[in-house]
């Protein structure tokens, strides 16, 4: 499991409709951001990758995806500073894997709420 809904449950004080709403928003946004990152990699548009990673940073925190934090910070930093760009493909692949797994987990959780 990469997700942990402890924060979300505490934040909503167990309000299932709100938990569902935020999860659905994450699912919509995460898919969009992954697409932006993928396109950014193809076009070498590092600014777009940085901005998308930046948005994913807070969203993944709220979904308890702590395992993504370090990867996102590095992507954001390397794209912003235009340094160590050779490490980007591996980092983006890692992030994509984590985010896709989180989406699968959350899609599985939604009907059980």
């Amino acid at each position: 499991m990469v997700t942990n809904l402890t924060f979300l449950n505490e934040f909503t004080r167990g309000d299932v409709s709100k938990v569902k709403k935020y999860i659905q928003m994450y699912l919509d946004m995460a898919a969009q951001k992954l697409q932006v990152i993928e396109e950014g990699m193809q076009k070498k548009d590092y600014e777009s990758i940085k901005v998308a990673a930046h948005t994913l940073k807070s969203q993944t925190k709220y979904m308890g995806i702590s395992v993504a934090e370090e990867t996102i910070i590095r992507i954001e930093r390397y794209c912003g500073e235009q340094t160590q760009l050779h490490e980007l493909p591996a980092l983006v692949e890692e992030l994509t894997k984590i985010v896709l797994q989180s989406m699968d987990e959350l899609k599985g959780v939604l009907p059980t709420l």
């Binding site: 934040f11 928003m25 807070s58």
Partner: peptide, 13 residues
Amino acid sequence: DDDPMQTQMLHDY
């Protein structure tokens, strides 16, 4: 905020 999820969560809170 340009992040709808962040805005919605803060709004609700």
